[in-house]
């Protein structure tokens, strides 16, 4: 993509190095300190020129640096496709669409005998060779977003506490009913404590494929076809139903704050503190 401008910048910098090197030959004999300066410039230019081979993305940002921050790109790294089935990256007139395919796994090696384990490993070998274009297969361990669950348990706790208070203020209330509601309050409170305390994690396997198009629609359609093909291949190979991820499911795979949702940060930090 940037190879044209990379070659141009390399040529300019290396030309500076050569010109400075040649200019040393014109320095009069009594100006020897100048030679040292010119040699340093020539050597530095040669090194910077070489660095453009692998670090062009950084070198081109250095002249515009402010407060020691080199900005390579100040736009969003991607945006969601209108239908929510892929993420899009625009580079000039080209649009790259990437779709994610969920690969559910319901079996464990502990339930398998040696032959089944061998066959399962071979199936994985077949899985990695189903696509001739690069396909990524990822296995991700991430924290579960417990926000909804915590809200549900809190609502139940509030409800049973309200009932307990009503019964307690009623002098004619059945002591057995009061005891039962008290037990209910304790149960929800314990559950809430446990949910907040324990580290809840989930492991998910997914594949991702990218397609290139000249417009958003073209890239989205092409990646949908590619994702369907990959999903069909994965489903047939592993005997499962692979589906294309949508919306927020995609964000769990690519955004760190979805991988560790705000509700679970406390427990992750607590775990980090025990290991640190």
């Amino acid at each position: 993509m940037d190879s044209g401008s990379q070659s141009l910048i390399f040529s300019i910098i290396v030309a500076i190095s050569f010109v400075v090197a040649v200019s040393i030959s014109f320095v009069p004999a009594n100006f020897s300190p100048l030679v040292l300066v010119l040699a340093v410039i020539s050597f530095s230019a040669a090194l910077v020129a070489y660095a453009t081979k692998d670090y062009f993305f950084l070198i081109r940002a250095l002249p515009y640096m402010k407060n020691n921050i080199a900005v390579i790109d100040d736009t969003d790294p991607y945006y969601l496709a209108p239908n929510g089935s892929a993420i899009l990256v625009r580079k000039g007139d080209t649009v790259y669409a990437t779709a994610f395919i969920k690969v559910p796994s319901n079996s464990s090696a502990t339930e398998m005998d040696d032959e089944q384990k061998y066959n399962f490993a071979l199936l994985f070998g077949r899985l990695v060779s189903i696509s001739k274009t690069p396909m990524r297969i990822s296995s991700q361990l991430h924290s579960i977003n417990k926000d909804e669950y915590i809200a549900k348990v809190t609502a139940r706790l509030n409800d049973s506490e309200a009932r307990y208070n009503t019964l307690q203020s009623d002098s004619k209330a059945d002591p057995k009913a009061l005891e039962r509601v008290k037990g209910e309050v304790t149960m929800w409170r314990n559950m809430l404590d446990n949910v907040s305390r324990t580290n809840s994690q989930d492991i998910e396997v997914y594949a991702s494929v990218t397609a290139v198009g000249n417009s958003e629609d073209e890239a989205t359609n092409l990646v949908a076809i590619k994702a369907d093909e990959a999903a069909a291949g994965i489903s047939a190979t592993l005997g499962i139903t692979a589906t294309v991820a949508q919306g927020n499911e995609i964000l769990t795979y690519i955004e760190p704050d979805y991988m560790i949702p705000p509700a679970t940060i406390g427990e992750v930090m607590k775990y980090q503190a025990t290991r640190g």
């Binding site: 396909m135 990524r136 297969i137």
Partner: peptide, 10 residues
């Protein structure tokens, strides 16, 4: 949290 990724191309 961690991810094990393998990019493959036959």
């Amino acid at each position: 949290p961690f991810k094990f990724n393998i990019i493959v191309s036959a």
